[in-house]
């Protein structure tokens, strides 16, 4: 069962100068088609300006296609009557942890979504509790968001989305403004949601180490999908990724460099264990 279908999506916006005259048209997303299966962990990689965030905002009916169609859980995002259903089905977490927390107390923020949906009071409390527990922030429920670290704030934002009981959660560069510790916290929470709660995850990022656990990776450049496949398949294309000036995990890069020097190491090495095994077989082969 697919949770998201995107067909021939094109999104253009009109640039205007200071007087409001049209300067030109920028195509932010250029003919993209992709399908996301229910329960999958999908990563979308790319630079700032590659169109990945614009693409993500289509999955939550924040932006609408110029051409093509986006279906979320079988519903066309361009049909007005589905907007709220879609936003509830596909929750969204944004980049800046400060600019998406509405409540002044953690639990109140998590309750914001259910409140908007008209969930009865008692159920709101249940949902808030389970969501905060799912991201490991329950003990902070009475805190002011201003007292939390970046990673903790993002986990609260994630809880705020889960409390709406979505089938799918879209994270638009949730770790870009965090330190390494916060980044780890958030990714761990996201993986747990996918593994334990079976929520479909669409992670938009430019950090390579965050996508190695994904079921499928899409790499975007200039509004198009230029690479796609499993992490291993994508990371096999070291030269292509370097061309796009994207990071490659260092172990993959080291393996790639050695292969260029004539070592018989397979493509797409992702962990140091794999690297060691590859070296072992090199010894056997070469000596």
């Amino acid at each position: 069962m697919d949770i998201i279908n995107i067909k021939d999506l094109i999104f253009e916006y009109i640039r205007r100068d200071e007087e409001g005259n049209v300067e030109g048209v920028t195509t932010a997303v250029d003919d993209v088609s992709l399908d996301v299966k229910q329960g999958d962990f999908v990563a979308i990689l790319g630079h700032n300006g590659s169109g990945k965030s614009t693409l993500a905002k289509h999955m939550n009916a924040i932006l609408y296609p110029t051409e093509g169609t986006v279906w979320v859980d079988g519903k066309d995002t361009q049909k007005d009557e589905y907007v709220w259903d879609i936003r509830q089905t596909a929750g969204m977490v944004f980049q800046n942890p400060d600019n998406q927390i509405i409540g002044q107390i953690v639990e109140e923020d998590v309750g914001f979504g259910p409140e908007n949906m008209g969930v009865p009071t008692e159920e709101i409390w249940e949902r808030v509790e389970e969501s905060l527990k799912a991201v490991g922030m329950y003990e902070f429920r009475k805190f002011s968001p201003n007292k939390l670290s970046g990673g903790q704030k993002q986990r609260v934002s994630i809880a705020g989305v889960i409390a709406m009981h979505p089938k799918c959660i879209i994270l638009d560069e949730p770790t870009a403004m965090l330190d390494p510790k916060g980044r780890k916290e958030v990714i761990r929470a996201v993986r747990a949601l996918n593994d334990v709660e079976r929520i479909t995850v669409i992670l938009i990022t430019h950090y390579m180490e965050e996508v190695i656990y994904a079921d499928k990776v899409y790499v975007m450049d200039k509004g198009k999908v230029t690479l796609q496949g499993t992490p291993r398949e994508v990371f096999s294309e070291v030269e292509r990724l370097k061309e796009l000036r994207l990071d490659v995990p260092q172990v993959t890069l080291l393996a790639h460099e050695l292969r260029k020097e004539g070592f018989p190491i397979p493509k797409g090495i992702l962990t140091k264990e794999e690297f060691r095994e590859a070296l072992d077989s090199c010894i056997k082969e070469m000596l």
Binding site: H47, N48, A176, M177, H206, R245, L246, D247
Partner: peptide, 10 residues
Amino acid sequence: TAGLDPKGRD
């Protein structure tokens, strides 16, 4: 480099 993508960072 905070908040920059890998290209901008490098």
